[in-house]
Design a protein around this nucleic acid. Structure first.
Length: 559
RNA sequence: GGGUGACUAGCGCAACGGUAGCGCAUCGGACUCUUAAUCCGCUGGUUCUGGGUUCGAAUCCCAGGUCACCCA
């Protein structure tokens, strides 16, 4: 059916060409946008006309055609406006094109991009309209839009075909407009404070600055493996060493992790570094930045998120990790002398998965994550973290075993992370080497020592406060999105599966060539005879492939 | 990684072991104030994929895929 609709519309493309019209025009000059006209003529009463010329362009969202009169609903970026299409007026306005009105009726479809010129008129039924005298079909659409009443509700399709989602769901456009306002407001705020944005490399020989699995890629002519950055931290700190005092970068980082409603493998963060500042300064900066941006974008500090009202008016609550855990569980982690003691006490109050915790600090962190995190709805600064989970933070100036670090939680989610940055190159080396040892022992989230970063620290980094904010999560909060996928225009999705169309086995080279229905061809190497025979004899080649070949043999993509 | 559920026409949905249907859109016709226009008529299907059970499968079973939600 879709093919038939497409064929019909392609035929209309031909008809337009034969009329000497270009179904894929070059440009159009508008004088107004829909929302602008709706606002300007809000007080125009029904049945009244204004003799003001307006030119506008947009997508046809609905068509209501009568014999010699038609109403179209046109949508541009700002909103919708009705077109009042009267045969007599169009015939007069487009005398050089005979039957212009009939062509409009017969050759346009919902989805086409149309430009019109005319005057302003509010119809007798009260709908503000453009009383069209001339039109041009600017782009012919070949594919049907979703049902005008039910719209597009299939979540997967909304993400895979975001352009359709944007066409039919105006609130989605509003989300991404607001996202742009948020990032622009953040940059403006920081620039007003004297920060400058410097871009640091995405491709790195040694990823660092966070504990996460990286994506691996390969540079052909240099013949080296490279990693996509998992944080911008280490390079921004090099800039502080270099003499910049206030730097930031708002950009994409990549972590090779699972996908969920809260995680996308590529996501946006901002990291901010300020020389001669500590985490107290960064706490003030965080509060002021988020409040200023929220006020600017939303016009209020009381944000509605998933039915809950979040009040971002500073100052925000502050509590140490120890106090918050004590409050939630009754456990005072300052009293534990041994790891075993801490684990036993934690297990008693229902904290699980403690097997991998090799220090009291990690047990404390588990307790926090399991019992406290999700309860922090209103903005809360959690301060003073165990050193074991904070390899880049400076030791606390009063409390032994802790570092000067805070995280900001809103709606049970971490939004920001900040420390008084570690500037002692010797201690930094020890912490990175400890991590490198874990990497050697098989921890995929640990990384090797970035020697160049340590060299930079040895030249001397001034005392520095650092701050990272998860932009996607902040956008979710300020746009009331339940899923991170609603806050990212094109979230990563698994590719739709493909089926085996044909296969061929070369016994002498042990190469199994498989052709998929999408046209791609792969050669699987070193596939034993019996496996290839199994593929041939199994009732379902696809099923056999998934179970016995996919992920089990190396392959080359032939096509 | 584990659990639960969903997947049927372009879109939204029904049929729950016995002829795959409805609304909108599409296509043809009528119509100069509609806005889910209306009226008349006609189309359109690999029921996610592959197996199995059965005289017969959208429906039951097995495996796989994608998505959503929950848990880790």
């Amino acid at each position: 059916m879709e093919e038939e609709i497409r064929a019909t519309r392609l035929a209309k493309v031909e008809q337009l060409k034969q009329l000497g019209l270009n179904p894929y025009a070059y440009r159009w000059e508008s004088t107004h946008h829909a929302a602008e006209l709706q606002e300007k003529y809000a007080d125009l009463s029904s049945g009244e006309e204004v003799d003001e010329e307006a030119a506008i362009a947009g997508r046809i969202l609905a068509r209501r055609v009568f014999g010699k009169l038609a109403f179209f609903t046109l949508q541009d970026e700002t909103g919708i406006i009705q077109l009042y299409l009267d045969k007599n007026k169009i015939s007069a306005g487009m005398a050089d094109l005979p039957d212009a009105f009939t062509h409009l009726k017969q050759l346009t479809d919902v989805g086409d991009i149309l430009g019109v010129k005319g005057t302003i008129k509010r119809t007798e039924k009260g709908e503000l309209s453009i009383y069209v005298s001339q039109y041009a079909i600017l782009t012919k659409s070949l594919l049907p839009l979703p049902d005008k009443w039910h719209g597009l509700t299939d979540v997967a399709k909304r993400y895979r075909q975001r352009y359709v989602d944007l066409i039919v769901n105006p609130q989605v456009r509003e989300t991404f407009r607001r996202r742009a306002q948020i990032t622009a407001a953040i940059r403006r705020y920081l620039e007003r404070q004297g920060f400058i944005e410097i871009e640091t490399p995405v491709l790195q020989a040694e990823p660092g600055g966070a504990e996460a699995r990286p994506f691996i890629t390969y540079h052909n002519t240099l013949e080296m493996e490279l990693y996509l950055r998992i944080a911008t931290e280490l390079h921004l700190k090099r800039l502080i060493v270099g003499g910049f005092e206030k730097v930031f970068e708002l950009g994409r980082i990549f972590r090779n992790e699972g996908v969920s409603s809260r995680h996308n493998p590529e996501f946006t963060t901002i990291e901010v570094y300020q020389a001669y500042a500590d985490y107290n300064d960064m706490m003030a900066l965080t509060e002021n930045l988020v409040a200023a941006v929220t006020q600017e974008v939303l016009g209020t500090l009381k944000v509605s998120y998933q039915g809950e009202t979040i009040d971002l008016t500073p100052p925000w609550r502050r509590g140490t990790m120890h106090d918050l855990v004590k409050e939630a569980t009754g456990l005072d982690f300052t009293e534990f002398k041994t790891l075993a003691e801490a684990k036993t006490a934690a297990e008693k109050v229902g904290i699980e998965e403690l097997a991998g915790c090799e220090s009291i600090g990690k047990v404390l962190n588990e307790a926090f994550e399991q019992k406290v995190e999700s309860t922090l709805m209103q903005p809360t600064f959690v301060v003073d973290y165990p050193v074991e989970i904070s390899p880049l933070a400076k030791p606390h100036r009063q409390k032994a075993g802790l570092v000067e670090r805070f995280e900001l939680f809103v709606c049970g989610r971490e939004i920001a992370n900040s420390f008084s940055e570690l500037t002692d190159p010797i201690e930094q080396r020890q912490r990175l080497e400890a991590q490198a040892a874990r990497k050697a022992a098989g921890d995929l989230e640990a990384h090797g020592v970035d020697e160049d970063f340590l060299t930079a620290l040895e030249y001397g980094m001034p005392p520095t406060g650092g701050l990272g904010i998860g932009i996607d999560r902040l956008v979710m909060l300020l746009t009331d999105c339940a899923s991170i996928r609603d806050a990212i225009a094109f979230p990563l999705l698994k590719s739709a599966s493909s089926f085996i169309k044909a296969f061929d086995y070369n016994a002498s080279s042990q190469t199994l060539r498989i052709e998929f229905d999408d046209g791609s061809i792969y050669d699987y190497q070193e596939v034993p005879d019996n496996v290839a025979q199994g593929l041939k004899s199994d009732t379902s080649a696809g099923q056999y492939f998934n179970a016995h070949i996919k992920d089990k043999y190396g392959f080359d993509k032939v096509k």
